[in-house]
Nucleic acid binder design. Structure first.
Length: 465
RNA sequence: GUGGUUGUAGCUCAGUCGGUUAGAGCACCAGAUUGUGAUUCUGGGGGUCGUGGGUUCGAGCCCCAUCUUCCACCCCA
């Protein structure tokens, strides 16, 4: 038996009780909101067939998938030639399962497999961990939770509008006041590419302009030229970075620039419709005033995400004035299930990154006391006799819905009260010989250090107030 | 995957030029106080200096490898 220092894999974390309680507070708000909008829960296995996942996230994504080694003699079906053909070839021979990389692809797989049982439009939410073999850094982990809500089987832009509503509701309920929901459309991006004379090159253009706030216009220019976009096109593109005005004014300006392109038309029409729905819903995202002065819902033509499968609206959410990447993102995909042989099912969805939301709430100190609640009262015992006396009282407290515990041994008073102190238990109930004789128990308020003598019924009344 | 960075007590960190027995604060334990926590005083326990090699008379300090942390790319929640 070698003495080995225990450790956990890179990019994974343990969550202590205090952290889990706070995480559950976030999960609860997200879950309640999803259900309020008519989404129902779904769970899928942690592992999928490797073939279900590969090819869905682009070449880079494939590399970030955690593969699972086949059980038993995983080398049985391999030959020396397989090894010489390199790791990509070998992987297929020794691994046929992998940990899920996101929740959207497993969802698409589920929809295809259950297409005959499902009633469309199908709205589901899913809160489960995903794994990525990425290199960890701030806000990036190898195991993290996603909270997805997707609806498939309708192309109505009401869904997009409701996504905005859900994002706004969840973040507001969590106490966040200064955040920006960025929205854009793949059609707008394609239209831009076409309008500047680089039709079909939007993925190169998007990867570059997405970095605008990070590397600035000159950096983007350099990158665009490196990617083979003509100088003339870049000249025509640059005025778009500084479009200003209200969202309605932005739409007007884009109409002039993109009006001639079919894709641009499609994008602008969709975006206008989303706005119309939000207006009808009386959306707070349209009216709320952010402290930073940025509109809460912002049409941002430089937003370019999830290019490998989004085809319509795309979303991203950023909390202002904190050093954290996006905490939520999503978009419409017209053909996700097509990869599994079911074409023509349009879907739209988005995801909250709970781990990042946690870090933001922590940084801004927005966790309420109620999210840290645990035991309300600790019964302090003195000896075997008082322990026996306490047992029915303990049960009475619990029956009354009060989170109560009895210190499990007759330790020193100091020890038992320290325990209450450290667990942040607001009350201690002392039961010694005097109390047993009189039936009047000492209820100590741990914050104030005051205590009063009460019969058990009065204790319960006091604690349930 | 590329480049850099970090690791010393449970936690946060000192540790001089490579030199004797590696320190502090907080936390923990015990006592002051045999029925009162958080405040006060006194005392105490705790370290293979991330791990494995190497250089040296001698390594927490220098070199190599490896793991981990954080950061910038790539990408992304």
């Amino acid at each position: 038996m070698s003495k080995e220092k225990p450790s956990i894999p890179k990019g994974t974390r343990d969550f202590g009780p205090a952290v889990v309680v706070k995480r559950n507070y976030i999960f609860g708000i997200i879950r309640r909101t999803f259900e309020k909008f008519g989404y129902l829960p779904l769970e899928t296995p942690a592992m999928e067939q490797l073939s279900v996942l590969t090819g869905k996230y682009g070449e880079e994504g494939d590399q970030l998938i955690f593969k699972i080694l086949n059980s038993g003699d995983f080398l049985a079906k391999t030959t020396p030639e397989d090894i010489s053909k390199g790791h990509k070839h070998l992987t297929r021979k020794v691994s046929e399962k992998a940990l899920r990389y996101d929740l959207t692809v497993p969802f698409a797989r589920f929809v295809v497999m259950n297409r005959n049982e499902i009633t469309f439009p199908f709205k589901r939410y899913q809160i489960q961990p995903v794994w990525r073999a990425d290199r960890p850094q701030k806000g990036r982990y190898r195991e993290f939770y996603q909270c997805d809500a997707d609806v498939v089987g309708t192309s109505s832009l009401l869904c997009e509008a409701e996504i905005v509503q859900m994002i706004n509701e969840v973040l507001s309920t969590l106490g966040l006041t200064d955040f920006t929901i960025k929205i854009n459309h793949r059609g707008v991006l394609a239209g831009i590419a076409e309008a500047i004379g680089e039709k079909g090159r939007e993925s190169d253009i998007c990867v570059a302009i997405d970095k605008l706030d990070k590397i600035g216009p000159e950096g983007v220019r350099k990158e665009l030229l490196e990617r083979g976009i003509s100088e003339k096109a870049v000249d025509k593109l640059e005025p778009l970075y500084t479009l200003s005005g209200s969202n309605e004014e932005l739409l007007e300006q884009l109409q002039v620039i993109l009006g001639e392109t079919a894709e641009g038309q499609r994008g602008l029409k969709d975006l206008r419709e989303v706005w119309a729905y939000l207006l009808g819903l009386n959306s707070q995202a349209l009216s709320a005033q952010n402290a930073s002065g940025i509109p809460r819902l912002l049409l941002d033509v430089t937003l370019a995400r999830g290019l490998s499968y989004y085809t319509g609206c795309i979303f991203e959410v950023k909390v202002n004035n904190v050093s954290m990447g996006s905490i939520s993102g999503g978009g419409r995909y017209d053909n996700l299930t097509g990869m599994f042989g079911l074409p023509g099912v349009s879907g739209v969805g988005f995801s909250f990154g709970v781990d990042r939301i946690y870090d933001v709430l922590d940084e801004l100190q927005l966790f309420p006391d109620s999210s840290q609640a645990g035991t309300k009262v600790l019964i302090v015992q003195f000896d075997k006799e008082s322990e026996l006396y306490a047992l029915p009282l303990l049960q009475q407290l619990r029956d009354a819905g009060i989170a109560a515990e009895l210190y499990p041994e007759a330790a020193k008073l100091k020890k038992q009260l320290s325990y209450a102190d450290q667990k942040n238990i607001p009350y201690a109930l002392l039961i010694g010989s005097e109390e047993m004789a009189s039936g009047r128990l000492k209820l100590r308020n741990m914050q104030r250090g005051e205590q009063q003598e009460l019969a058990i019924n009065d204790v319960i009344a006091h604690l349930t107030r």
